[in-house]
Amino acid sequence: MYGTRAYGSGYPGYFGYGVAGRGFPFWFWPVVWGGSSDQYLHDSEYGDSFNTSRLGGPMAQANFISNSTGSTFHVLSDNSTIGSLIDSINTNCSSNLSSSSSKSPSPYNSSAPGGPQPEQAIQYYRSSSIVLTLDGYNNSATFNNNPNTTDSPLPSGVDTTLLNCLNYTVGEAAPLIDSASSRYISPSCLGFTTLVWLLWVLAHYV
């Protein structure tokens, strides 16, 4: 479930960069980054951020701002996952959040300048289908093809209390469907209860 700061982490049994050809071990598609010259970050296999075929709907984002330091974090994933996580984060981390933090998902345009960037990623989750980013962070290891490169340290003054709360909440509360080992699996392979849950999530957040 928990990955690292590397795109392609969080896949059971896989190591190294990139998401190409790895399938959907938790059903949800990996996030996509637009405009990157690095092939492993910019693969057309999953379309762009507006792809409506993505389970849970097109990509969306939410921002969470510290009420003490102003540290600004973003969570990116599919629309249904973001809607669910906003509720969990606003419940668990409310004492550390600014009132200007997100209350609902916002569409994510992977090609728009000024939005969250891959070098700002501080944690991937659920086979890289969710990512937590931090404004002002620039991880030089993101664009280094050597997987042993050390990640850049986080900038000083980051609200680590909020960061830890976000990291824990996303990792524990993210919608999860296990045991999808192949890339395309018929819904008939799902248990009835899981299928009902999935339809409920899609109806409420897509």
Rank of each mutant, 00 (worst) to 15 (best):
Y125D: 03
R126T: 12
R126L: 09
S128R: 06
S128I: 10
S128N: 04
S129W: 10
I130L: 10
V131R: 13
L134V: 09
L134A: 07
L134N: 05
D135W: 03
G136T: 11
Y137H: 15
Y137K: 13
N138W: 12
N139A: 11
T142N: 12
N144R: 07
N144P: 08
N144Y: 02
N145H: 08
N146R: 01
P147R: 09
N148C: 07
T149R: 02
T150V: 15
D151G: 11
P153W: 14
P153E: 14
L154S: 04
P155V: 12
S156G: 15
S156Q: 05
S156V: 09
G157P: 01
G157Q: 04
V158A: 03
V158Y: 04
T160G: 01
T160H: 05
T160V: 05
L162D: 03
L162A: 04
L162M: 04
L163W: 11
L163C: 03
L163H: 07
N164L: 01
C165M: 13
C165Q: 08
L166I: 11
Y168H: 04
Y168G: 03
T169G: 05
T169D: 04
T169A: 02
T169E: 05
V170F: 05
G171R: 01
G171S: 00
E172T: 05
E172D: 02
E172M: 02
E172Q: 08
A173L: 00
P175R: 02
L176F: 14
L176N: 10
